[in-house]
Protein backbone atom coordinates (compact mmCIF):
# COMPACT_ATOMS: atom_id res chain seq x y z
CA UNK A 1 0.00 0.00 0.00
CA UNK A 2 2.64 2.50 1.05
CA UNK A 3 4.79 1.55 -1.87
CA UNK A 4 2.03 2.33 -4.27
CA UNK A 5 1.25 5.70 -2.74
CA UNK A 6 4.86 6.77 -3.13
CA UNK A 7 5.04 5.40 -6.60
CA UNK A 8 2.35 7.68 -8.01
CA UNK A 9 3.99 11.03 -7.15
CA UNK A 10 7.30 9.73 -8.47
CA UNK A 11 5.73 8.88 -11.75
CA UNK A 12 4.07 12.27 -11.82
CA UNK A 13 7.35 14.08 -11.34
CA UNK A 14 8.98 11.93 -13.96
CA UNK A 15 6.15 12.68 -16.32
CA UNK A 16 6.52 16.44 -16.03
CA UNK A 17 10.29 16.38 -16.22
CA UNK A 18 10.45 14.15 -19.22
CA UNK A 19 8.48 16.36 -21.58
CA UNK A 20 8.78 20.03 -22.24
CA UNK A 21 5.62 21.45 -20.78
CA UNK A 22 3.74 23.55 -23.28
CA UNK A 23 3.34 27.07 -21.85
CA UNK A 24 -0.42 26.89 -22.23
CA UNK A 25 -2.35 30.12 -21.87
CA UNK A 26 -4.05 30.43 -18.47
CA UNK A 27 -7.82 30.62 -18.75
CA UNK A 28 -9.43 33.87 -17.60
CA UNK A 29 -12.18 32.16 -15.69
CA UNK A 30 -12.63 28.82 -14.08
CA UNK A 31 -12.52 26.32 -16.88
CA UNK A 32 -14.73 23.99 -14.84
CA UNK A 33 -17.58 26.35 -15.43
CA UNK A 34 -17.65 25.13 -19.01
CA UNK A 35 -19.04 21.66 -18.96
CA UNK A 36 -21.89 19.55 -20.12
CA UNK A 37 -24.80 19.75 -17.72
CA UNK A 38 -27.61 17.26 -17.40
CA UNK A 39 -29.78 18.34 -14.47
CA UNK A 40 -31.13 15.53 -12.33
CA UNK A 41 -34.23 13.99 -13.76
CA UNK A 42 -33.76 15.39 -17.25
CA UNK A 43 -33.67 13.13 -20.27
CA UNK A 44 -30.44 12.33 -22.08
CA UNK A 45 -29.50 15.15 -24.48
CA UNK A 46 -29.34 14.50 -28.21
CA UNK A 47 -26.10 16.43 -28.68
CA UNK A 48 -23.25 15.29 -26.45
CA UNK A 49 -20.37 17.38 -27.87
CA UNK A 50 -19.20 14.35 -29.85
CA UNK A 51 -16.24 15.55 -31.95
CA UNK A 52 -16.49 18.97 -30.38
CA UNK A 53 -14.74 18.73 -27.00
CA UNK A 54 -15.61 21.54 -24.65
CA UNK A 55 -12.83 23.98 -23.95
CA UNK A 56 -12.57 27.65 -23.27
CA UNK A 57 -10.78 28.58 -26.48
CA UNK A 58 -13.43 26.98 -28.68
CA UNK A 59 -16.18 28.50 -26.58
CA UNK A 60 -14.61 31.97 -26.79
CA UNK A 61 -14.23 31.60 -30.55
CA UNK A 62 -17.90 30.68 -30.82
CA UNK A 63 -18.80 33.68 -28.71
CA UNK A 64 -16.66 36.02 -30.83
CA UNK A 65 -18.34 34.72 -33.98
CA UNK A 66 -21.85 34.86 -32.55
CA UNK A 67 -21.50 38.55 -31.80
CA UNK A 68 -19.55 39.49 -34.94
CA UNK A 69 -21.34 41.06 -37.94
CA UNK A 70 -18.46 39.77 -40.07
CA UNK A 71 -20.81 36.82 -40.67
CA UNK A 72 -23.15 39.04 -42.70
CA UNK A 73 -22.64 40.43 -46.16
CA UNK A 74 -22.83 44.10 -45.28
CA UNK A 75 -21.39 43.70 -41.77
CA UNK A 76 -24.60 44.97 -40.18
CA UNK A 77 -26.10 41.77 -38.81
CA UNK A 78 -24.72 39.31 -36.31
CA UNK A 79 -26.41 36.31 -34.75
CA UNK A 80 -27.10 38.57 -31.80
CA UNK A 81 -29.16 40.92 -33.97
CA UNK A 82 -31.91 38.34 -33.78
CA UNK A 83 -30.91 36.38 -30.67
CA UNK A 84 -30.37 38.70 -27.68
CA UNK A 85 -29.27 37.54 -24.28
CA UNK A 86 -31.60 39.74 -22.24
CA UNK A 87 -34.59 38.00 -23.83
CA UNK A 88 -33.15 34.46 -23.60
CA UNK A 89 -31.62 34.83 -27.06
CA UNK A 90 -34.92 35.51 -28.78
CA UNK A 91 -35.51 38.72 -30.73
CA UNK A 92 -37.11 41.41 -28.65
CA UNK A 93 -40.22 43.01 -30.09
CA UNK A 94 -39.85 41.84 -33.66
CA UNK A 95 -42.57 39.60 -34.95
CA UNK A 96 -40.70 38.71 -38.09
CA UNK A 97 -36.98 38.98 -37.74
CA UNK A 98 -35.06 41.64 -39.62
CA UNK A 99 -32.02 40.66 -41.61
CA UNK A 100 -29.59 42.47 -43.86
CA UNK A 101 -30.86 45.52 -45.73
CA UNK A 102 -33.87 45.50 -43.41
CA UNK A 103 -35.69 42.74 -45.19
CA UNK A 104 -38.11 40.77 -43.07
CA UNK A 105 -37.86 37.06 -42.77
CA UNK A 106 -41.10 35.15 -42.65
CA UNK A 107 -40.49 33.57 -39.28
CA UNK A 108 -40.05 34.69 -35.70
CA UNK A 109 -36.64 34.16 -34.03
CA UNK A 110 -36.89 31.44 -31.42
CA UNK A 111 -35.17 31.74 -28.04
CA UNK A 112 -31.95 29.74 -27.72
CA UNK A 113 -31.26 27.56 -24.68
CA UNK A 114 -31.15 23.85 -23.89
CA UNK A 115 -30.57 23.29 -27.59
CA UNK A 116 -28.79 20.00 -26.87
CA UNK A 117 -32.16 18.39 -26.33
CA UNK A 118 -33.65 19.45 -29.67
CA UNK A 119 -33.71 16.54 -32.12
CA UNK A 120 -34.33 19.01 -34.98
CA UNK A 121 -33.97 22.75 -35.41
CA UNK A 122 -36.10 25.54 -36.84
CA UNK A 123 -39.88 25.84 -36.57
CA UNK A 124 -40.19 23.24 -39.32
CA UNK A 125 -37.36 20.96 -38.16
CA UNK A 126 -35.50 21.46 -41.43
CA UNK A 127 -32.06 21.43 -39.82
CA UNK A 128 -30.90 18.15 -38.34
CA UNK A 129 -27.73 19.04 -36.41
CA UNK A 130 -26.74 21.94 -34.18
CA UNK A 131 -23.38 22.20 -35.95
CA UNK A 132 -24.88 22.85 -39.36
CA UNK A 133 -27.61 25.15 -38.07
CA UNK A 134 -25.59 28.39 -38.50
CA UNK A 135 -25.26 27.69 -42.23
CA UNK A 136 -28.93 28.49 -42.59
CA UNK A 137 -28.83 32.13 -41.41
CA UNK A 138 -25.42 32.77 -42.98
CA UNK A 139 -26.42 31.50 -46.42
CA UNK A 140 -29.93 32.88 -46.41
CA UNK A 141 -30.06 35.96 -48.64
CA UNK A 142 -32.59 37.61 -46.37
CA UNK A 143 -31.01 36.97 -42.99
CA UNK A 144 -27.29 37.51 -43.27
CA UNK A 145 -26.95 37.46 -47.06
CA UNK A 146 -23.50 35.93 -46.92
CA UNK A 147 -22.10 32.64 -48.05
CA UNK A 148 -19.72 30.49 -46.07
CA UNK A 149 -16.92 30.61 -48.62
CA UNK A 150 -16.78 34.39 -48.36
CA UNK A 151 -17.10 34.38 -44.58
CA UNK A 152 -14.14 32.00 -44.33
CA UNK A 153 -12.13 34.29 -46.61
CA UNK A 154 -12.88 37.26 -44.36
CA UNK A 155 -11.98 35.30 -41.23
CA UNK A 156 -8.68 34.19 -42.78
CA UNK A 157 -7.72 37.81 -43.33
CA UNK A 158 -8.11 38.56 -39.62
CA UNK A 159 -5.08 38.13 -37.34
CA UNK A 160 -7.38 38.01 -34.34
CA UNK A 161 -9.34 35.07 -35.73
CA UNK A 162 -6.18 33.32 -36.88
CA UNK A 163 -5.04 33.31 -33.27
CA UNK A 164 -8.42 32.28 -31.91
CA UNK A 165 -8.70 29.34 -34.34
CA UNK A 166 -5.20 28.23 -33.37
CA UNK A 167 -6.01 28.49 -29.67
CA UNK A 168 -9.09 26.38 -30.24
CA UNK A 169 -7.90 23.84 -32.78
CA UNK A 170 -4.12 23.76 -32.40
CA UNK A 171 -1.10 25.50 -33.86
CA UNK A 172 -1.28 25.97 -37.60
CA UNK A 173 -4.97 25.07 -37.62
CA UNK A 174 -6.65 26.16 -40.78
CA UNK A 175 -9.67 28.42 -40.56
CA UNK A 176 -12.41 26.41 -42.22
CA UNK A 177 -16.15 26.08 -42.24
CA UNK A 178 -16.36 22.93 -40.12
CA UNK A 179 -14.37 24.52 -37.29
CA UNK A 180 -16.27 27.78 -37.43
CA UNK A 181 -19.49 25.80 -37.18
CA UNK A 182 -18.29 23.67 -34.29
CA UNK A 183 -17.25 26.74 -32.32
CA UNK A 184 -20.62 28.42 -32.87
CA UNK A 185 -22.36 25.20 -31.92
CA UNK A 186 -20.31 24.82 -28.75
CA UNK A 187 -21.13 28.36 -27.64
CA UNK A 188 -24.84 27.84 -28.19
CA UNK A 189 -24.93 24.31 -26.81
CA UNK A 190 -23.64 25.57 -23.46
CA UNK A 191 -26.55 27.99 -23.08
CA UNK A 192 -28.36 26.08 -20.38
CA UNK A 193 -31.50 27.17 -18.67
CA UNK A 194 -32.12 25.21 -15.49
CA UNK A 195 -32.14 27.82 -12.74
CA UNK A 196 -35.63 29.27 -12.88
CA UNK A 197 -37.79 29.42 -9.80
CA UNK A 198 -39.54 26.29 -11.07
CA UNK A 199 -36.18 24.46 -11.06
CA UNK A 200 -35.38 25.69 -7.58
CA UNK A 201 -38.75 24.49 -6.34
CA UNK A 202 -38.06 21.11 -7.90
CA UNK A 203 -34.69 21.00 -6.17
CA UNK A 204 -36.29 21.90 -2.84
CA UNK A 205 -34.58 25.30 -2.71
CA UNK A 206 -37.73 27.41 -3.03
CA UNK A 207 -41.49 27.16 -2.76
CA UNK A 208 -44.30 28.17 -5.10
CA UNK A 209 -46.83 30.76 -3.96
CA UNK A 210 -50.40 29.54 -3.88
CA UNK A 211 -51.21 31.02 -7.32
CA UNK A 212 -48.13 29.54 -8.87
CA UNK A 213 -48.88 26.15 -7.41
CA UNK A 214 -52.45 26.16 -8.70
CA UNK A 215 -51.19 27.39 -12.05
CA UNK A 216 -48.74 24.49 -12.11
CA UNK A 217 -51.59 22.05 -11.56
CA UNK A 218 -53.58 23.56 -14.40
CA UNK A 219 -50.48 23.42 -16.56
CA UNK A 220 -49.97 19.76 -15.83
CA UNK A 221 -53.53 18.98 -16.84
CA UNK A 222 -53.82 21.13 -19.92
CA UNK A 223 -50.44 21.95 -21.42
CA UNK A 224 -47.93 19.36 -20.28
CA UNK A 225 -48.81 16.76 -22.91
CA UNK A 226 -47.05 18.96 -25.49
CA UNK A 227 -45.02 21.50 -23.49
CA UNK A 228 -43.60 18.64 -21.50
CA UNK A 229 -41.60 19.07 -18.29
CA UNK A 230 -38.75 19.52 -17.55
CA UNK A 231 -37.81 21.03 -20.92
CA UNK A 232 -41.33 22.33 -21.40
CA UNK A 233 -41.48 20.81 -24.82
CA UNK A 234 -41.24 17.35 -26.30
CA UNK A 235 -40.07 19.04 -29.55
CA UNK A 236 -42.71 17.24 -31.61
CA UNK A 237 -44.41 18.92 -34.56
CA UNK A 238 -48.05 19.86 -34.19
CA UNK A 239 -50.74 22.12 -35.47
CA UNK A 240 -51.92 24.09 -32.45
CA UNK A 241 -54.86 25.61 -34.27
CA UNK A 242 -53.47 28.91 -35.52
CA UNK A 243 -55.41 30.31 -38.47
CA UNK A 244 -53.37 30.23 -41.66
CA UNK A 245 -51.90 33.58 -42.63
CA UNK A 246 -52.75 33.74 -46.36
CA UNK A 247 -49.97 36.26 -47.07
CA UNK A 248 -47.31 33.78 -45.99
CA UNK A 249 -49.14 30.43 -46.11
CA UNK A 250 -46.38 28.70 -44.20
CA UNK A 251 -47.03 24.97 -44.37
CA UNK A 252 -44.53 24.29 -41.56
CA UNK A 253 -43.21 20.77 -41.24
CA UNK A 254 -44.70 19.80 -44.61
CA UNK A 255 -42.34 22.26 -46.23
CA UNK A 256 -39.58 19.82 -45.28
CA UNK A 257 -41.21 16.42 -45.49
CA UNK A 258 -43.63 17.07 -48.32
CA UNK A 259 -46.22 15.04 -46.41
CA UNK A 260 -49.82 16.33 -46.42
CA UNK A 261 -50.13 14.95 -42.89
CA UNK A 262 -47.49 17.49 -41.78
CA UNK A 263 -49.22 20.56 -43.14
CA UNK A 264 -49.34 23.46 -40.65
CA UNK A 265 -47.39 21.58 -38.02
CA UNK A 266 -44.64 23.47 -36.20
CA UNK A 267 -42.14 22.48 -33.57
CA UNK A 268 -43.61 22.71 -30.08
CA UNK A 269 -41.59 25.48 -28.41
CA UNK A 270 -40.26 25.31 -24.88
CA UNK A 271 -42.13 27.57 -22.49
CA UNK A 272 -39.06 28.30 -20.39
CA UNK A 273 -38.39 32.05 -20.26
CA UNK A 274 -41.73 32.54 -21.98
CA UNK A 275 -42.52 35.88 -20.30
CA UNK A 276 -39.52 37.39 -22.12
CA UNK A 277 -39.74 35.96 -25.59
CA UNK A 278 -42.64 37.91 -27.08
CA UNK A 279 -43.81 38.01 -29.77
CA UNK A 280 -45.11 34.46 -29.87
CA UNK A 281 -45.74 31.61 -32.31
CA UNK A 282 -43.72 30.78 -35.45
CA UNK A 283 -44.81 33.98 -37.15
CA UNK A 284 -44.87 36.15 -34.05
CA UNK A 285 -48.57 36.90 -34.40
CA UNK A 286 -49.23 37.35 -30.67
CA UNK A 287 -47.60 40.08 -28.62
CA UNK A 288 -48.71 38.97 -25.20
CA UNK A 289 -49.09 35.79 -23.20
CA UNK A 290 -52.74 36.71 -22.68
CA UNK A 291 -53.28 36.49 -26.41
CA UNK A 292 -51.60 33.05 -26.46
CA UNK A 293 -53.83 31.76 -23.67
CA UNK A 294 -56.91 33.31 -25.21
CA UNK A 295 -55.99 31.51 -28.40
CA UNK A 296 -56.21 28.16 -26.62
CA UNK A 297 -59.51 29.11 -24.98
CA UNK A 298 -61.39 30.58 -27.92
CA UNK A 299 -59.14 30.96 -30.95
CA UNK A 300 -58.45 27.41 -32.09
CA UNK A 301 -59.08 27.15 -35.84
CA UNK A 302 -59.92 23.74 -37.18
CA UNK A 303 -57.40 23.59 -40.03
CA UNK A 304 -56.10 20.27 -41.39
CA UNK A 305 -54.04 18.21 -38.94
CA UNK A 306 -55.19 20.15 -35.87
CA UNK A 307 -53.78 18.40 -32.79
CA UNK A 308 -56.58 16.16 -31.44
CA UNK A 309 -56.02 17.45 -27.89
CA UNK A 310 -57.01 20.90 -29.03
CA UNK A 311 -60.30 20.07 -30.78
CA UNK A 312 -62.80 22.44 -29.24
CA UNK A 313 -60.12 24.44 -27.43
CA UNK A 314 -58.96 24.37 -23.82
CA UNK A 315 -61.52 25.85 -21.45
CA UNK A 316 -59.91 28.21 -18.91
CA UNK A 317 -61.64 30.67 -16.58
CA UNK A 318 -60.15 34.16 -16.14
CA UNK A 319 -58.85 33.18 -12.72
CA UNK A 320 -57.26 30.01 -14.14
CA UNK A 321 -55.57 32.15 -16.78
CA UNK A 322 -54.13 34.38 -14.04
CA UNK A 323 -52.80 31.35 -12.17
CA UNK A 324 -51.35 29.82 -15.30
CA UNK A 325 -49.56 33.09 -16.00
CA UNK A 326 -48.23 33.17 -12.46
CA UNK A 327 -46.82 29.70 -12.99
CA UNK A 328 -45.35 30.50 -16.41
CA UNK A 329 -43.52 33.44 -14.84
CA UNK A 330 -41.65 30.99 -12.61
CA UNK A 331 -39.98 29.60 -15.72
CA UNK A 332 -37.81 32.67 -16.22
CA UNK A 333 -34.13 31.96 -15.65
CA UNK A 334 -32.27 35.11 -14.66
CA UNK A 335 -29.00 33.21 -14.41
CA UNK A 336 -28.96 32.65 -18.17
CA UNK A 337 -29.98 36.24 -18.91
CA UNK A 338 -27.18 37.73 -16.86
CA UNK A 339 -24.44 35.12 -17.25
CA UNK A 340 -21.38 37.15 -18.28
CA UNK A 341 -19.83 34.39 -20.30
CA UNK A 342 -22.62 34.66 -22.84
CA UNK A 343 -22.49 38.44 -23.09
CA UNK A 344 -21.17 40.46 -25.99
CA UNK A 345 -17.36 40.17 -25.88
CA UNK A 346 -16.95 43.39 -27.89
CA UNK A 347 -18.92 45.51 -25.43
CA UNK A 348 -17.12 46.80 -22.39
Amino acid sequence: MILRVVFIPIILVFFFLSCKVDPKVKPHFDENELKEIIPTGWPEPVYRFQNNPINKATFELGRALFYDPILSVDSTVSCESCHQQFVAFAHSDHALSHGVANQLTTRNSPALFNLNWHPLFMHDGGVNHIEVQPLAPINNPIEMGENTVHVIKKLRRSARYKKMFEDAFGKGAEINDAQMLKALAQFMALMYSYNSKYDRVKRGEAEFHQDELEGYQIFQQKCNQCHKEPLFSDFQFRNNGLSVNPAINDSGRAHITGLPSDRYKFKTPSLRNITLTAPYMHDGRFNTLDQCLQHYVSGITNTVNLAPELQGGIPLTPSEIQKLKAFLATLTDYTLLTDKKFSNPYAN
Partner: peptide, 18 residues
Amino acid sequence: GPQTGDLSPSLGMFWSWN
Protein backbone atom coordinates in the same frame (compact mmCIF):
# COMPACT_ATOMS: atom_id res chain seq x y z
CA GLY B 1 -22.89 17.75 -38.76
CA PRO B 2 -20.33 19.57 -40.87
CA GLN B 3 -17.92 17.46 -42.89
CA THR B 4 -14.69 18.40 -44.60
CA GLY B 5 -13.01 17.83 -47.97
CA ASP B 6 -15.40 17.22 -50.85
CA LEU B 7 -18.21 17.10 -48.31
CA SER B 8 -17.57 20.64 -47.02
CA PRO B 9 -20.91 22.42 -46.77
CA SER B 10 -19.43 25.42 -48.60
CA LEU B 11 -19.21 23.83 -52.04
CA GLY B 12 -22.72 24.72 -53.09
CA MET B 13 -23.80 21.10 -52.71
CA PHE B 14 -25.43 21.39 -49.28
CA TRP B 15 -28.90 22.60 -48.37
CA SER B 16 -28.77 24.66 -45.23
CA TRP B 17 -32.51 25.12 -44.58
CA ASN B 18 -33.38 21.50 -45.12
